[in-house]
Structure formats: C-alpha cells, structure tokens
Design a protein around this nucleic acid. Structure first.
Ligand code: FES
Ligand code: FES
Lengths: 145, 145
DNA sequence: AAAATAAAGGATATACTTGTCTTTTATTGA
DNA sequence: TCAATAAAAGACAAGTATATCCTTTATTTT
C-alpha cells in the first residue's frame, strides 16, 4: 500500500472532483463521481457519506441532489480530509511501530523520519481543498487511470 | 497504518536486533528476537524466514543455531529490507492511487509528493544495515515499547 | 398523493494482513 | 544412534480493509 489507504486515495480524488463540480455550481451523484475518479461505486458511497458526516462535504437527497462542498469547507486543509478517513496515525505514529513516537524513547529512524513526517504534514496542512481545486485549472491533472 | 506495514515494522526492528547480536558474534533464536522487539513470535518467524530466503539475513538450524547476518549483508540498504517485505510501492506508487505515477499524467499531489518520496527513498537507501546498527551504540534507541 | 430520484444505512461478501499452531527437516552433541 | 534444538514449512484462525447489494429515508416533480 502507498502512504494512504485505498479509502483515502478515493476520498482525496473525490473531494477534488466534487470541489471542481461545486465551483461550477453543480451537485454530483455518487455514480458520476465514481466513474470520473475510477472507483467502486458503493464503496465510494460510504466514503462520501463519511466525509459528509464529518462536515467536509455536504449532500442533499432527492432529484437534483447530490454531493457538493460549501464555500467555507474550501478552506479546510487536505490534512482534515486525510484525518477524517485514515485518522492521525500518519501524523503521529512511529515509523518502526513503537507504541508511541517520542524523543525520550526514539526508534532508530526517529530523527530521519521526523523530518519526513513534518514534510508530509506540511504538504497536507498548507494546502486547502480550495487551493487543491484551483491547481486543476492551471495544469492538467488526472484523477483516473 | 503508518508508512510501513506491520510486517515491515517488525522486520526492521528485528534486523537491527539481529545485526547487533551478530556484531557480538551471537546467533539468536526467533523467540529471543520476538521478546526483545515485542512482536508475535510465530508471525516474526515468517518474516525472518522471508528475509533469510531473500539473502538479507542468514540462519542455521539445530542447537546453537539461529539467525545472524553476514558481514557482506551489512552493506545492504534499509531500502532492500523494506523492499523485501513491502515491495516497491512505497518507492514508486502514486500518492492518490492512480495506476501509475508519471509526470505525463500526474495526480494533483504529484509534485509535492515527489519530493517527499525522494526523501523517504534517500533515508532508506543512504543508510545501510551496518550504519543502522552502529547508531545503536551512539545513542540509546529503543526497539520495543 | 404518487412516482421518481438520490443519499443514508445496514447486512453481507471477498481479499488481504496479521497472528497462532502443528508438523517436518536439518543440525548438533551426547 | 538417539535426543535435543532450532529453523522451515504448512494449515488454519482472527481481524481489518475493500467491495457489493438491498432496504430505508428524505426530497423533488408531476
Ligand atoms: S519513535 Fe519511531 S519515529 Fe519517533
Ligand atoms: S501521479 Fe500521483 S504521485 Fe505521481
């Protein structure tokens, strides 16, 4: 597995896609999102429901309904998205699996890994969902394949 | 989960421990290693067997036997250990789960993540098992708790 | 009110990871 | 040769992540 779980990979891709649709004033259904980001429909549904429950995405039922993102939520960082799905282990856990990462009882990778972890954290915390979506406009990024 | 699988966390901890024992000319049994690095015995056995098969650790059966590491293997990088257990996905995979990470069809995290991935790679490739073990002598590192 | 739409929720299935247990094989030493 | 030791190998169990399906609830449109 990569650095994120599969759920989280789908979640991040979906958030960008929904944000992009919302910028055009469009609500999107699970099916459409799943097709566009190439993910299993029902599995993605759970993920989107979770993100809604956690206030990152919004949704409305019924005809014309679907998922969208509030203006205010565009200011949420990608870290919030990751945390909502994968929890905080990526930001806090020990690289070598010690129960707790600490400078008092460091594992042999602690120093090296500390820098890497802070870069990961920075990448995710310094970038908002809005920024993320804006980038789509500048360069051609891909969410499927 | 953290950046490595549980198997890999155990594997890295075990490799340091075995290397340390080997430096003292001692072969160690699975049971001892498992206790010292706080891991499930039988599960660790599989991991050590795998590392042996891949030529990273060595082993001998029978009384006085156990796991040890050849001088030459001390020059192997930590990346080799990780690769032997978790494969190359950490070094090659796309952060957002696209089938292939490439600059031609980049995901929105491609640029940021590229730097992080190369730092991870560097951390693991620039450090040999021998270096890793030597560090143990300088500072007090922990492999359990 | 009825029909259609779409998310929410729950139950279940599949796959993979992690963990345990037992048997077999090789080696050593008595 | 026999007993003891320790890794190797294989079968199995539990746990978690991933994936699918079906029913319920809320909303809109007719
Ligand atoms: S103790 Fe292992 S990364 Fe901090
Ligand atoms: S394409 Fe996603 S990290 Fe390179």
């Amino acid at each position: 597995m990569g650095i994120f779980s599969k759920s989280c990979e789908y979640g991040l891709r979906a958030v960008v896609y929904v944000a992009d649709a919302s910028a055009e004033g469009r609500k999107v259904g699970v099916k459409e999102v799943a097709e566009e980001i190439d993910s299993p429909v029902h599995f993605l549904a759970k993920i989107l429901q979770n993100l809604s429950k956690q206030g990152i995405l919004s949704s409305s039922k019924g005809p014309g309904g679907g998922f969208f993102i509030e203006k205010s939520a565009l200011n949420l960082s990608l870290a919030k998205v990751v945390e909502a799905i994968d929890g905080r282990s990526l930001f806090e856990g020990c690289a070598m699996g010690l129960k707790k990462c600490s400078a008092k009882k460091p594992c042999p990778l602690h120093d090296d890994f500390g820098m890497i972890r802070s870069k990961i954290t920075k990448m995710l915390e310094s970038q908002t969902i809005g920024d993320f979506r804006d980038n789509l406009l500048k360069v051609d990024y891909f969410l499927d394949t």
